[in-house]
Design a protein around this nucleic acid. Sequence first.
DNA 1: TTGAAAGCGCTAACAC
DNA 2: GTGTTAGCGCTTTCAA
Lengths: 340, 340
Amino acid sequence: MAATLRDVAELAGVSIKTVSNVVRGYQHVRESTRATVLAAIAETGYQPNLSARSLRIGRSGVIGLALPELALPYFAELAGAVIDEAKAAGVTVLVEQTGAELDAEHGVLRSPTRQLTDGLVFSPLAMGQDDVDRLDVDYPLVILGERIFDPACDHVVMDNVEGARAAVAHLVAAGCRRIAAVGAHLGEEQGSAALRLRGYREALEEAGLPYDEDLVGYVGMWHRVDGAEAMRALLARGIEIDGVFGMNDTLAFGALRALQDAGRRVPDDVRVIGFDDLDETRYTAPSLSTVDPGRLEIARTAVRVLLERIAERAAGGEPSPPQRYTTGFRIVERESTRAR
Amino acid sequence: MAATLRDVAELAGVSIKTVSNVVRGYQHVRESTRATVLAAIAETGYQPNLSARSLRIGRSGVIGLALPELALPYFAELAGAVIDEAKAAGVTVLVEQTGAELDAEHGVLRSPTRQLTDGLVFSPLAMGQDDVDRLDVDYPLVILGERIFDPACDHVVMDNVEGARAAVAHLVAAGCRRIAAVGAHLGEEQGSAALRLRGYREALEEAGLPYDEDLVGYVGMWHRVDGAEAMRALLARGIEIDGVFGMNDTLAFGALRALQDAGRRVPDDVRVIGFDDLDETRYTAPSLSTVDPGRLEIARTAVRVLLERIAERAAGGEPSPPQRYTTGFRIVERESTRAR
DNA sequence: TTGAAAGCGCTAACAC
DNA sequence: GTGTTAGCGCTTTCAA
């Protein structure tokens, strides 16, 4: 059986309070006592029981991270960054996948698991304006990546509209006039897809180009296969296309392949840009231009804000009002939009 | 404050035992009582305190998953599968990254976090034969993906040697005679890299081809960049190469790009095969042939075995001896090795 | 500086 | 079928 405080105390000939003091790094312990206790700890291999500590102090040192799925590289890279940040702060991360399904997204907010985590970093995909009330929960919650209007919690957002606008403007600057958008979600108004579509429209408008519904490729998810299929469907329409805005990099990757299969040369005939700056964009042929949304900054900010909220709540007192944190982005030009 | 059993009991006018019975689905509760209690639970919004339950019963319903890093797509897809499997069994997953560093791999085995998880699924990369003693821990542990000889715990392995052998044999069958291996680790004897290199050598031998150290590309990690750099280095040697075995798909992806940059046509001049069957291999140009190691089966087996161990230990009694589970693989032929 | 003891919320043995 | 109660291992007041 694992050793407890009591075992260590007995072995060291002190009370459990003294052992606890040593374990928790309390200052006022006589050096000789501390040494005795540390020896006893080493001998028994004592490790604090975190469930007991958690029950007692009301915090577990675990935060939750809920995201659509790790099979989407963007979320995998994000999760990796969140876990690293959390670890640096001495906190561990419990990861849950929602599959971007509305029920699962609601579920994760009320899951019994929330009793085990001190707070949640949540990247919703299916939830929209109608669900904003559900975000009014009684534990620290940080929302990622969406611009849901005025939720009752902190949120860390990338500037989806501006990023998309810049991406499409980049295509325009490269000479594109018939730019397809791949990755729209039918009927969506608040999610990343809707916001990036808005950025696309704004960029067209600024450039004096017409918005043509025939140039919009609708998809279910944002996997590579969806990008490829949407692109094929667009090409099948037989309309002229000289630029493609993939709403994320995996879509753009799939679209790139579909273009090449159809005999279109990239960037000569069609220029392509994605969104996310995934590692894989550096290695496609041609490499993909993209929007770097500062994934690391998002992860870092989310963890920091969440831990601040957890600390604030532990300290008692009035919570400060929820805030929105917007991270910067930058266009990364690679071969897929390079002028010849 | 969150409601407790006592609050619910008071509201329902019963004892906490009865509430506990209802919560835990105990059969022998009068229907009317159950209804009253359920109403009280709904009214108070009661959720069981998992730390308290965990402290009491000695299990948390959380398992740990330790892997090199989520930024490696193989591990991201694996983690996603593990989380899904665990969820289906009513268990949540705490994810830790080791960065493939030896200290971190040792650390994860002794981390205080282990006090919070009922068991661990661990995919080591840096650990070798010298470290096998460390795997003799006092909690349920399942090792993934390595063929460490006779560890004192269960392990689920893919057949690295056979898979690699088949991959290289596939290249040989396609007519390759000068086959480079990209992804070897200098001095490694037990890890995936060593095993896949062994499979490479065996396949050459079977084909009556000489093993040429000049055809082996050594790398640090298995990222795309490592594959690209190793391939460039190989090409810089000026030796003849008509086939490339990437020890995983990301390496192969990087190598593919490096080949193309050097003006080599794939598969015309050089054929390329990878390992892992990542989604991205379907979309590169040309698409990458690879070895499908049955990631889903690995995840499923690992979670099943771990949960069985946890149950076994909860039931008391003698534990059964540790077992090795080997999953099957299959060659996936795509464009990068297709005959013209 | 150290010790005694209460109690976090839950489960389960035992009593009725 | 339901109630009483001990105790899981820890932190923390309060006393000494």
